[in-house]
Write a protein that binds this DNA or RNA. Structure first.
Length: 595
DNA sequence: GCAAGGTC
């Protein structure tokens, strides 16, 4: 084909980076196509006219079955309109997951509004952006979108919108009758996130510390090495005292057993988003939401690969040259050793989201002490540790020693093979050496004592712990999960002090009120509930219409139960609101530690 | 102004 002539294909990807990969591939194969992309969703669902905040009672939202499409990304929409005025058949090249399918459907609807309802299109379905995979997909274009996937994602969209808006409007409007408040919200992800924080706080509040006792002995070997050993914990003070009597004043102990073993610590797996956020929030103390946006900047500027991925394995055809070169050209290169002697052998995990590879470095980021550098360095070190380093090894030892009538135990652990810790210097286990002993050895007692301690409540949730809970309970996705801890802080339901989350009075009362109506409103059950329906739509065992109907009927009942108690609930919520609290916006990452 | 999901 010649320049200026009509082009045959218009390929639309989900994001610019994928469009670039496809364009490069097609060009190399001599295929003439116009390749462009949107940036995620272009359209969003909203209620039809007449269902605005002040137009109707929120309960009416449960009977909405026809939703309005609104443009959520004006720029992408306009670009598509322009592109679709050209000649050429549409190829939908969005990600291979149900949200990608829905985005594809949005693209198709814009296309057909311009080209007519019968305008031809194809679906290009690929599981990675490697040239080989893209070429395979290009030669196996599918005739249509997977409508089960589209409807599955749409069910999620509509259920979350109706329930979220209904409860949020009810709670906000009713509380405003007592106090001026910006927003009191409920949602299938944010509410269980807050639920986790409140649940932990209640465990701490109701925790009754119980005393326990143990005997601690400090020994010295013939070589003059000292170490400590402890008896089991005892809840019974009388028993502890009796045993202590047999130990008190003893000058020696006798070694009953001494065993050594080895423990392998596997090198880290290829990096997915959840792991990146959990680890970095522990390393830096910065919020997951901020960290993800920093990772996105690194990606946008070409320092690392796409940072939103659930994949923790490298495909067989992954090209390791680029990331390794990034390492070689960086200040980390001195840790690499002689690369000619190193095997390229990643330790793979089992997850593959079918759209993106694990996160890896692409080019060096300068050592400037910034947060961005910390994030890049973590990505780079993790990649190197996974691909170029060996497992580490701990030497572990255990001994039992008799003193009087008591057996005390000590265990030691030392790093015997540094392995990947040379590169990945995070979370290195503490070494607790104990001397080498033999059964029958007699040890000098340097000091012995009967100690009292109290059981301690569980700690408050850190962001890493919260993300872990969300992940385990199916709250949010890898791309959205970081948002919810941020939301519960911004809405005034919780505060982050140091690295821990504390519910506010409002947060506590909100969870109390909702769980008083039904536990499902503050547990992961809502998410599970809607996802079971989504799965039915996916499999085709039930239609979208049936599922939306049934799911909303259940939540309409919960809404009514909430409404029946709304006077008491709204008074309780209003009672927790002090006007000043809402003036300052909670700055998530720079909370003072001193309140 | 509401949710959660994409992505910038």
């Amino acid at each position: 084909m010649h320049k200026g002539e009509a082009q045959t294909y218009i390929v639309v990807a989900e994001k610019p980076s994928v469009a670039r990969s496809i364009a490069k591939l097609l060009k190399s194969k001599g295929v003439d196509a116009y390749v462009t992309s949107v940036r995620g969703h272009v359209l969003n669902a909203d209620f039809p006219e007449g269902y605005e905040w002040n137009s109707i009672d929120p309960s009416k939202l449960f009977s909405v079955r026809e939703f309005r499409s609104i443009i959520s990304d004006e720029r992408s929409y306009k670009e598509l309109e322009g592109v679709f005025k050209k000649d050429g058949a549409l190829i939908i090249a969005t990600d291979n997951d149900s949200e990608g399918e829905l985005i594809g459907y949005e693209i198709l609807s814009i296309y057909r509004a311009i080209k007519g309802n019968q305008a031809p299109y194809k679906r290009m379905r690929f599981n990675s952006t490697n040239p080989g995979e893209l070429w395979r997909a290009w030669n196996n274009l599918e005739d249509s979108l997977n409508m089960n996937w589209v409807m599955k994602a749409m069910l999620r969209q509509h259920f979350d919108l109706v329930t979220g808006a209904a409860f949020t409007r009810l709670l906000t409007k009713e509380t405003r009758k007592h106090k001026n408040v910006r927003l009191i919200s409920w949602g299938s992800c944010q509410s269980p996130t807050l639920g986790f924080i409140v649940k932990r706080e209640k465990e701490i509040m109701s925790f009754k510390p119980e005393p326990f006792w143990y005997i601690r002995v400090r020994f010295r070997t013939e070589d003059g090495e000292e170490f400590e050993a402890k008896s089991e914990n005892m809840k019974d003070l009388e028993r502890a005292k009796a045993l202590w009597k047999s130990v008190e004043g003893q000058k020696t102990g006798r070694v009953l057993s001494y065993d050594e073993g080895k423990k392998t610590i596997r090198r880290p797996l290829p990096l997915d988003t959840d792991t990146l956020l959990k680890d970095l929030t522990r390393i830096t103390g910065v919020s997951a939401a901020t960290l993800l946006s920093v990772a996105e900047e690194l990606y946008a500027e070409g320092y690392c690969s796409y940072p939103r991925t659930e994949t923790n394995r490298f495909r067989y055809d992954f090209d390791f040259r680029e990331p390794i070169e990034a390492l070689v050209n960086s200040d980390l290169s001195k840790l690499l050793g002689d690369l000619n002697k190193v095997r390229i052998e990643p330790l793979n995990g089992r997850k593959d989201d079918g759209a993106h590879p694990p996160i890896y470095p692409i080019k060096p980021y300068p050592k400037d002490g910034s947060l961005k550098r910390n994030v890049w360095e973590y990505i780079a070190r993790r990649f190197a540790a996974n691909v170029l380093f060996s497992d580490a090894e701990l030497g572990e030892s255990e001994t039992e020693i008799r003193v009087g009538d008591v057996v005390v135990r000590a265990s030691g652990s030392v790093i015997t093979q540094e392995g990947f810790f040379k590169m990945f210097e995070y979370f290195i286990p503490k070494e607790t050496p104990i001397p080498k002993l033999s059964p029958g050895d007699v040890l000098e007692v340097v000091k012995s004592e009967l100690k009292e301690e109290k059981t301690r409540p569980p700690p408050r949730l850190t962001e890493a712990a919260l993300l872990e809970l969300m992940e385990k309970n199916g709250i949010g996705t890898d791309a959205t999960r970081a948002e919810y801890p941020k939301i519960v802080v911004e809405r005034g339901y919780a505060v982050k002090r140091g690295r821990s989350f504390y519910p506010t009075e409002l947060g506590m009362r909100l969870v109390d009120a909702l769980s008083g109506v039904d536990e499902r409103l503050v547990t992961p059950d809502t998410r599970k509930f809607v996802e079971d329906f989504m799965e039915m739509v996916n499999r085709g065992t039930k239609t979208y219409d049936e599922c939306l109907e049934q799911a909303l009927r259940v939540y309409e009942e919960l809404y009514k139960a909430c409404e029946a108690n709304i006077k008491r609930i709204s008074e309780a919520l209003a009672g927790a609101i002090s006007p000043t609290k809402y003036k300052r916006s909670a700055n998530y990452d720079f909370q003072s530690n001193s309140t």
